[in-house]
Amino acid sequence: MEKNRFKEIAASNGTLVILIVMCVLVTIVRPAFITPANIMSILSAACVTGCMALGMTFVIISGGIDLAAGAEVAFAGCVGAAFGQTAEAAAGKVIDGLPQLPFIIPLVITLAVGVLVGAFNGFLISKFNTPPFIVTLGMTTVLRGATLLMTGGEPVSNLTPGYVALGSNILDIVPVAVIVFIILIIICSVLIRKTKFGKDVYAIGSNEKAASVSGVKVPQRKVMIYALAGLMYAAAGLIVAARATSIHPGAAQGYELIAIASCIIGGASPSGGTGTIRTTVIGALIISVLRNGLTLLGIESNWQQIAVGLVIVFACALDVRRNSSR
């Protein structure tokens, strides 16, 4: 009886068990893994793609996919940063002669750009009934091009103290970005579990036609889903800019794949209708722990990439098995 119960818990928290086992194994081989500094570095490394994965979770549960996530991070990040350069940064200034503005302005602009771009994606998807895959694939190129045009291919640097603060650590140990990440996790989690919007997202992902019969305004919801995702990508863009006090137009290249992978490893089904914020965060942490652990073990980054890729494939295979055994 006790054993069965343990099995049940393990089965319903499979990804959490994997995460814990990974942590234990790495700790045995490299005790340095479990130091506070290293744990913070794992969390910190998970922040950017983690924020993206939060937004991506809504998209994937609704049965969609967002390949433009990485490009949105760079676009929103760069547009915002253009308003966040110091006055004396004469060379490399995107908007000539702009005085130094309070941090709230680039902050709001970054987030607004993310929301607008996301809403536009959602609009294209629902208005013309185009597959999200195609729309966001196209938008990736559009956004990358726009970012390069705007910045002239140069990084947007010399950012104001607000950015510096966002990229710093509290008490020299806890990164501000991690705090932001945790707050966003809580907000997203409440949104998906405890609001009508969240239920609508699940409804659209599990049966779109039934959703519209049952009173879900599907087109409007899709715009909101991609807009919310855009907001999360913009937050990731802010963190990217803050960390280096500079953001490159080619930033976050390929990050959308890590974000998607976090959702899938966590157990969200690519065909929609399932997934939670909790499991996505676990998925994001699994990738981060894997990278960190491999680094501690002295395995070079090219091999790490292969390892992460294999984990994603393995997770998808697991997802298929999980669904067929039902």
């Binding site: 409804a203 599990s206 039934a210 209708g273 399932t274």
Partner: peptide, 9 residues
């Protein structure tokens, strides 16, 4: 199945 139930919920 087409526009009634949400099968996986």
């Amino acid at each position: 199945r087409g526009n009634g139930i949400f099968p996986i919920q």
